[in-house]
Write a protein that binds this DNA or RNA. Structure first.
Length: 900
RNA sequence: GGCGCGGUGGUGGAACGGUAGACACGCAAGUCUCAAAAACUUGUGAGUGUAAAAGCUCAUGAGAGUUCGAAUCUCUCCCGCGCCACCA
């Protein structure tokens, strides 16, 4: 007897390890998650594509699971959810790993892609892998090259110079992370700042269009191009507004699949750190008006403000300061021209052209002075950007020249200092020590005069000027593992051209990344020789990255040493020419991958415009906050370029952005191998199952928060799932079918849960959605009998979180059932949300003194509620002998007696 | 220095301006057990009070304000975290 019982128990125990892989296989075989557009309501659910680093870690789970839960909910709610994924497969880590271990970057990368794809399967997501992109494959980067060429054609990709970290020994540009204490990490040589030729994208041209409009309280982020947007099929984007009738009676909502439309509007306006949704409140008031939720975009304030700051538009003026005893002048940018009367000296950056002209001997000057200046400038140039940032003490040198202050008419001295940046404004400032902290420090240190400003001075010769903090995007990397730049450098073509127009200036200067010439350079310089830049014809794409290349560091781009690959016939003149040996920044790859996803095999263009029309813009873009300034800005930039190229007709690629936090190690620190606090998802899955991990990641904290992993808490989640599992027995052992025996309380609990879970999932509030499920489970567990309707509804609500467990139970209790993931999301009925009696708080002078139960059909009548409240024992003693001055009644919530 | 986000029990966190601490974790006691684990039940902000209850007081970083009523709105300050940073 005992043994038999034991057997039964074991049989009915929850073993996630057994059921999870089984269902993953079945879903895969039956194509359950293949995308189809049968409902005509698309929903593009996008997560930032991962880098194939080797193994899936908890961070990947955290990035993908809540979005998957959201996607599954949307799917059950009747949307055609498009949820693809790919790999951001080019980049430095592969090259470094390869150098370290002697494996080829491609082999290393593709092996990781394979491993991680397998690991993704254990997560149980509904990702449709038919739609993917692996950026290191020619069929993807071919289109990188295509886009690059189109940009080149439009003058958006250009060759220019920028100050960079430069190692004189290795003759190469170094990234900041490759400088150790001012020295080259490879050879130990001093690193200097040098103007180096490289490829740029002219993102500054789009600065104004990339600025998010700042909306007042009532606004949202308006879509810059509403008309274009409304030319899209609108069936997916028009939602009825929130109205009482829809909330109170689901039969008025025959579309039925999306019971939370009301809360959709709510959700878009509720996020504390999000811009409020335009029109939401107005349409509630208006009743019948329509919300087109695509007429605005909803991005976190953090991103909007961050990007706007980064772009850094500032309006000011240019003022000429005439150089004494000459016909030349120095131009200055300032946002405070009204302080010009307090300008007691002028400072130019060491890279300023006036300094060069001094050093070139264009100005009469004492010999010793010239040498001093030369020394100062050289020293300043030696400083790396890092050092400039760290060392804030002012240094500088007097030029011995003066300029005339156009307001006061006084001669003021010109100084050189590296606290003035060559890359911003004109590289020269008027120093107003009485108004500016930095100028004051400088003046104090070098004993320069400090004069008060009236703040009323306005130089007559000031010209309005807008400056941006944003700089053009440097996209060339002297690396192997990236997209080859599809440009051919031809000496012969250059010679022909230069003979035609012999008067050539030096190539455009981009001091500090700031473009000075609009055009950029129309020729390149390689090893000191000029070449014409000939774009590779589109039909010759892709320029494949050769496999057998010595990619170990040698001081020049690895591709530059592959003579065979490098030498090529010039497509223009047919002569001997060279390929470009540099590769594209990987941020180029990731700036448009979500367009490629929709038609990954399309071979006529980067993407199929028809498909993009169907599926974009992205409805929600999940990712980390580290991409606030880089990736998401670049992706917006590409989108605007695509629009200008006529490839698309919208302005923003994603309607909504959701940024998640970080899962820390159990010790509260960021997970890292060296700290030994890494939680391996594989291990946890082995112990608790994927469903438990999924649920825990949703439950542990708000999605945007950062908190440590808790071993205890996941155990609690496991317990919860076990209890769900064991309810099966309760259902089975019930003799009578109690379908019609649900009480008002039962219904109320059920429909509250339906509403809460749906609303929360719409609003990305995963943690409280799980809590609502727990609350309802606690209620169900305490009951003697459970109706099948209740259990099935519960499973449906749980299905997005725990797809395996719910599928297993679903198909066990319904022998002929299809997948639970094909079920419709339950629809809550407002009349069931209401209980027989409503609890109302009774307060006296704002302090809670009692709670009373009022029959729900009486809560409209204040006099009734008041009477009941006054009858209450514990209220009586506070009101007795007092004069009731005022009674505040908030329907169904609180009644407050103000006594005195 | 600028911008952004936060500060609620022992912990993670809930709270349309309306019962602060939902839901969990942890902890304590109990049931079961030879025992432990697991599971289940109960309790759990702090103080005060009581045989036990009822009850009362204080509590959302500090202080003020608005309000019948404030974790929530306003102002001042303090402290954390993130990003940017000599940007004129």
């Amino acid at each position: 007897m005992k043994i038999k019982n034991l057997k039964l128990k074991i049989k009915s125990r929850y073993f996630p390890q057994e059921i999870e892989s089984k269902w993953q296989e079945i879903w895969d075989k039956t194509g359950l998650y293949k995308f189809s557009s049968k409902h005509g309501k698309k929903y593009y659910n996008l997560v930032e594509l991962p880098y194939p680093s080797g193994d899936l870690h908890i961070g990947h789970w955290f990035s993908f699971v809540p979005p998957d839960v959201h996607a599954r909910y949307k799917r059950m709610a009747g949307f055609d959810v498009f949820f693809p994924n790919g790999f951001d497969a080019f980049g430095l880590p592969a090259e470094n790993a390869a150098i370290k271990r002697g494996v080829h970057p491609k082999d290393w990368t593709m092996k990781n892609v394979a491993t991680m794809t397998k690991q993704f399967a254990t997560m149980g997501t509904m990702i449709d892998w038919d739609y993917t992109a692996i950026t290191c494959l020619p069929e993807y980067y071919k289109w990188n090259q295509w886009i690059f060429l189109k940009m080149f054609e439009r003058g958006l990709a250009y060759r220019g110079k920028a100050l960079s970290n430069w190692c004189e020994v290795d003759k190469t540009v170094l990234a900041n992370e490759h400088i150790e204490a001012g020295k080259c990490w490879r050879c130990g040589a001093e690193v200097i700042q040098k103007e180096v030729e490289q490829w740029f994208l002219r993102i500054t041209e789009y600065a104004d269009r990339l600025i998010w409009p700042q909306m007042e309280e009532t606004g949202g982020q308006p879509h810059a191009d509403r008309d274009a947007r409304s030319s899209f099929p609108q069936n997916q984007s028009q939602t009825s507004s929130l109205s009482e009738s829809q909330l109170s009676n689901s039969e008025d909502n025959p579309s039925g699949q999306e019971p939370s439309f009301g809360s959709l509007a709510d959700g878009l306006s509720s996020g504390k750190d999000h811009q409020p949704a335009r029109n939401a409140s107005a349409s509630v008031a208006g009743g019948s008006s329509i919300i087109n939720h695509k007429s605005f975009v909803d991005w976190p304030k953090q991103v909007i403000d961050g990007q706007n700051n980064w772009i850094g538009r500032s309006e000011g003026v240019l003022i000429q300061f005439p150089i004494s005893n000459s016909q030349f002048s120095i131009e200055v940018f300032t946002t405070h021209p009204e302080t010009a009367d307090g300008a007691t000296f002028l400072v130019v950056a060491p890279e300023h052209e006036f300094v060069s002209s001094l050093l070139n001997g264009k100005w009469q000057m004492a010999n010793g002075k010239l040498k001093e200046i030369q020394e100062y400038v050289e020293q300043a140039k030696k400083k790396t950007e890092m050092e400039r940032k760290e060392d804030r003490t002012k240094s500088g040198i007097f030029t011995s020249k003066y300029v005339k202050n156009p307001v006061t008419g006084k001669d003021i001295p010109v100084w050189i200092s590296d606290y003035v940046l060559a890359g911003y404004g004109t590289g020269a400032i008027m120093a107003v020590p009485s108004a500016d902290q930095r100028d004051r420090e400088f003046a104090t240190k070098f004993q320069l005069p400090i004069e008060k400003t009236s703040f009323k001075a306005k130089p007559e010769n000031a010209i309005a000027k807008v400056n941006y903090h944003l700089r053009d995007w440097s996209i060339s990397r002297q690396r192997y593992w990236g997209t080859p730049i599809p440009v051919i450098h031809c000496r012969e073509c250059w010679e022909v051209k230069s003979q035609k127009s012999p008067a050539r200036n030096a190539s455009a200067s981009v001091a500090g990344g700031k473009v000075k010439s609009k055009q950029g350079s129309d020729y390149s310089i390689i090893d000191g020789k000029e070449y014409a830049m000939i774009p590779v014809p589109l039909e010759d794409l892709p320029i494949e990255l050769p496999y057998n290349v010595d990619y170990t560091p040698k001081g020049k781009p690895p591709l530059a040493s592959d003579e065979e690959w490098l030498s090529v016939k010039c497509p223009k003149c047919g002569g001997k020419a060279k390929r470009d040996a540099e590769t594209l920044d990987t941020f180029f790859d990731s700036a448009w991958y979500f367009y490629r996803y929709v038609s990954p095999n399309y071979d006529k263009a980067p993407f199929d415009q028809e498909k993009v029309k169907q599926l974009l813009p992205v409805d929600v873009y999940f990712g980390g906050s580290e991409h606030t300034l880089g990736h998401t800005l670049y992706a917006r930039f590409f989108t605007k370029v695509f629009k200008d190229m006529g490839l698309i007709d919208f302005d923003e690629f994603a309607d909504k952005r959701v940024q998640h936090g970080v899962v820390l190690g159990p010790d509260g620190n960021r997970m890292s191998k060296s700290k030994g606090n890494v939680v391996s998802p594989d291990d946890v899955v082995k112990e608790y199952g994927a469903d438990a991990v999924r649920l825990y990641l949703c439950f542990m904290m708000p999605y945007e928060a950062t908190a440590p992993w808790s071993v205890g808490a996941i155990n609690g989640i496991y317990r919860f799932l076990k209890r769900v599992w064991e309810l099966q027995d309760k259902i089975k052992n019930q003799k009578s079918k109690i379908k019609d025996e649900l009480s008002r309380e039962d219904y109320s609990q059920m429909h509250k849960a339906i509403k809460k879970v749906g609303d929360d999932l719409n609003n990305f509030q995963f943690n409280t959605a799980v809590a609502a499920l727990m609350t309802w489970l606690n209620f169900l567990s305490a009951k003697d009998k459970i109706a099948k309707e209740e259990y099935e509804t519960f499973l449906k609500l749980l299905a997005p979180f725990a797809p395996h467990l719910t599928e297993e139970i679903w198909q066990t209790i319904n022998s002929s059932a299809n997948s639970i993931h094909l079920e419709n999301w339950p629809v809550y009925q407002a009349n069931h949300l209401v209980e027989e009696n409503t609890q109302i708080v009774v307060a006296v002078n704002g302090k809670t003194r009692a709670t009373i139960l009022v029959p729900t059909d009486k809560i409209e009548e204040q006099s009734e509620v008041e009477k009941l409240a006054k009858d209450n024992q514990s209220v009586v003693k506070y009101i007795n002998n007092m004069q009731v001055k005022k009674v505040v009644y908030v329907k169904a919530r609180i009644i407050n007696f103000v006594v005195g």
